[in-house]
Design a protein around this nucleic acid. Structure first.
Length: 137
DNA sequence: GCCAACGTTGGC
DNA sequence: GCCAACGTTGGC
């Protein structure tokens, strides 16, 4: 069981849209980055991740679960690009902002801080527990 | 809206 | 195989 962070610009795909998909979940499509794709290849059913809103909001807003293994990205014919499906599990009671993450020395090594451009990234169990706590879960 | 950081592309 | 040019992302 691994933990992840999925980043999305709310204008393109928001937490509310993800929640609206319910149990069926939705493809995490549109990833055009090898590093991000390679992480998705290692994901397993039941892995959990934070749903992060980039740009204006810059905060983790909810928790998702991987509900389909890596498969071709239906939004392109290019066989290089694949994706998993994720479904919303629960919102964070309090969104955990990038500011809060940066303010906590224990989270200074998060990929979110070190490589802000990576749209799918791993989260350590310690980071996971801390952010859940900060988020009121 | 700007710009730094990063990844990808393509010419050599 | 290197590296310059370019495009994109995302924080500020």
């Amino acid at each position: 069981m691994q933990y992840w962070l999925f980043k999305s610009e709310p204008n393109a795909w928001s937490w509310d849209q993800q929640v609206a998909k319910g149990e069926a979940g939705e493809e995490w499509d549109g990833i055009r980055n090898y590093q991000a794709r390679n992480f998705m290849r290692t994901m397993e059913i039941g892995d959990r991740g934070f749903f992060y809103h980039s740009m204006k909001e810059k905060a983790c807003v909810g928790i998702i679960e991987v509900c389909a293994l890596i498969h071709p990205d239906s939004t392109t014919d290019d066989p290089r690009w694949e994706c998993v499906d994720i479904k919303a599990v629960a919102p964070l009671k309090t969104p955990v902002t990038l500011e809060m993450v940066k303010a906590d020395a224990r989270l200074a090594d998060m990929v979110l801080v070190k490589n802000s451009r990576l749209s799918v990234q791993p989260v350590t169990p310690d980071e996971w527990a801390l952010i859940c706590e900060m988020g009121g879960l």
